[in-house]
């Protein structure tokens, strides 16, 4: 029987990351979709950096930042008693950055597709931007929201480089499934590595099938 803790920890990490990321990304994606600023390409590039950077680079700089010897790490530790290096909280912060484009990009695409006329119609009715966001925009970009949430969740499950750099391999704290697989292979424990791999494979496959069936449904309803 394998140790289920890495799988549970992975799902916890993915869940916490996705929930926080969702609320962080809505305003970012909204701004990016509707801004006229000439700085827009710079912000878009920054958000998308984790897509092209090797995860080890992200992890390396985060580790330096989180270290109790750095200004930020020291300040966090001294004032709040938070130590982000080699802790679950650190993994969450790392995953937020690493999965950011997977949440922001689909949301931004959704916001851009919304007809400006809908927003203007709601404005003539005296509705605030907040009301328009909650009651008009978000309900009409459901497929984008589902894609963003599920992709971020799935991407966090598959994370390895960042986690290894900033989290290490502490059971119950930072030892997620991808690390556990690496660990078992190192220990020549191919059976256990295989079990973890099959579970992750199945999980990722199911998530993707889910996204594609949802999107297919939405295309249907637009065409009819």
């Amino acid at each position: 029987m394998i140790d289920w803790q890495p799988i549970i920890l992975t799902l916890q990490l993915a869940l916490v990351t996705t929930v926080i990321l969702f609320f962080l990304s809505i305003p970012m994606a909204y701004k990016l979709a509707f801004t006229q600023s000439s700085l827009k390409p710079i912000f878009e590039a920054l958000v998308s950096m984790p897509l092209v950077l090797p995860p080890t680079i992200v992890g390396f700089y985060l580790l330096l930042t989180f270290s109790p010897n750095s200004t930020i790490g020291y300040w966090l530790n001294n004032n709040f008693g938070i130590n982000l290096a080699f802790s679950f909280e650190g993994l969450v912060v790392g995953s937020l950055i690493y999965s950011l484009p997977f949440m922001v990009q689909p949301l931004q695409a959704g916001f851009s597709k919304i007809s400006v006329k809908l927003i203007e119609a709601a404005q003539t009715m005296g509705r605030t931007n907040w009301e328009i966001l909650i009651r008009v925009i978000l309900p009409n970009i459901k497929p984008s929201i589902i894609t963003a949430v599920v992709l971020s969740f799935a991407h966090t499950i598959g994370e390895f480089g960042v986690v290894l750099m900033i989290g290490g391999n502490i059971p119950g704290e930072t030892k997620v499934a991808s690390i556990a697989i690496y660990d078992e292979v190192e220990a020549m424990n191919y059976g256990a590595a295989n079990t973890y791999s099959v579970i992750l494979f199945a999980l990722s496959f199911l998530i993707l099938v889910f996204i594609y069936s949802i999107n297919k449904g939405s295309f249907k309803s637009i065409n009819s």
Partner: peptide, 30 residues
Amino acid sequence: LHTGQRKVGFVFQDYALFPNMTVLGNLKFA
């Protein structure tokens, strides 16, 4: 003055009905 404070009703060329609301929902929102 913000558009919501002017007493105007605007009917758009492509109607701009809220697709996520029923007919009654659209009227209630207004």
